[in-house]
């Protein structure tokens, strides 16, 4: 495996014999459902799986939760908090699992973090350099769902829209519905801009769970078979 930027000190990419598969997509894109199905599919075939997600590290998760409750952090500080959390997970969870030959399923990865930062005014070159510490995954699936469908699915699940997923901190609109639609469009635009550079495999998520899963499985299978290319 390789890193996007300079190799992380203390990590030898040649020892990483596992596979890293990322599923990206907004809340309501069907991401969690698809991650569960994918896990079943791979375990059924005898692969060992580790699930990782954003904000699950022990190092700064409390601080992040606290910071989300109030608006106490500046933009750069918040970006760095998330980057720290990501680096901690990368080194303490992802790398050891890859060394041990696991398939690591990442429920979102640096792309969401980067898109959120850039939409909030961060310098794109700075953000790219910051996340140069990340390992290049073997496959990145991006579940694209239209903002209109996302609203519907979020309402069906929670009957409410999340403050942060609506980008209310950006002041796009005082109306949360309006803000959600505009924010999700901005994020999708960032994903489109990143797609070429980072080589996402875009999956149209506006379809049934089963047909989306079918497409993901065949993509994953193809990736696992291309063993010698990595």
């Amino acid at each position: 495996m390789r890193f996007y930027g300079e190799p992380m000190p203390g990590v030898n990419p040649d020892e990483l014999v596992g596979k890293l598969i990322v599923v990206e997509g907004a809340d309501g894109s069907g991401r969690s459902t698809q991650m569960d199905l994918l896990r079943d599919f791979l375990e059924h075939r005898g692969h060992a799986i580790l699930n990782v997600g954003l904000r699950r590290s022990t190092l700064v998760s409390e601080e992040l939760a606290e910071a989300k409750r109030g608006n106490v952090l500046g933009e750069i500080t918040r970006s760095l908090f998330y980057a720290t959390d990501f680096a901690d997970q990368l080194e303490n969870r992802i790398v050891p699992a890859l060394k041990a030959g696991f398939i690591v399923l990442a429920d979102r990865y640096i792309y969401t973090l980067m898109a959120r930062d850039i939409v909030r005014g961060a310098d794109p070159a700075w953000v790219r350099s910051l996340y140069g510490i990340a390992l290049v995954p073997h496959l990145v699936i991006y579940l694209r769902v239209s903002p209109g469908q996302l609203v519907e699915r979020n309402f069906r699940k929670n009957a409410t829209l999340d403050y942060w997923e609506s980008g209310m901190d950006l002041g796009l609109s005082r109306d949360i519905f309006d803000s959600f639609i505009r924010y999700q469009r901005l994020i999708q635009k960032q994903f489109s801009l990143m797609q070429h550079e980072y080589g996402f495999h875009i999956v149209n998520g506006n379809r049934s769970v089963r047909s989306v899963a079918g497409e993901i499985f065949s993509r994953v299978e193809a990736t696992l078979e291309m063993r010698h290319e990595f």
Binding site: M8, P9, G10, V60, L73, I76, T77, L80, A87, E91
Partner: peptide, 19 residues
């Protein structure tokens, strides 16, 4: 690790810098 050590100090600095 060296990376998280560096990032966490940078976060500390950024907080003081921005605020």
């Amino acid at each position: 690790t060296p990376t998280t050590f560096s990032l966490i100090h940078c976060t500390d600095f950024a907080d003081r810098y921005e605020r």
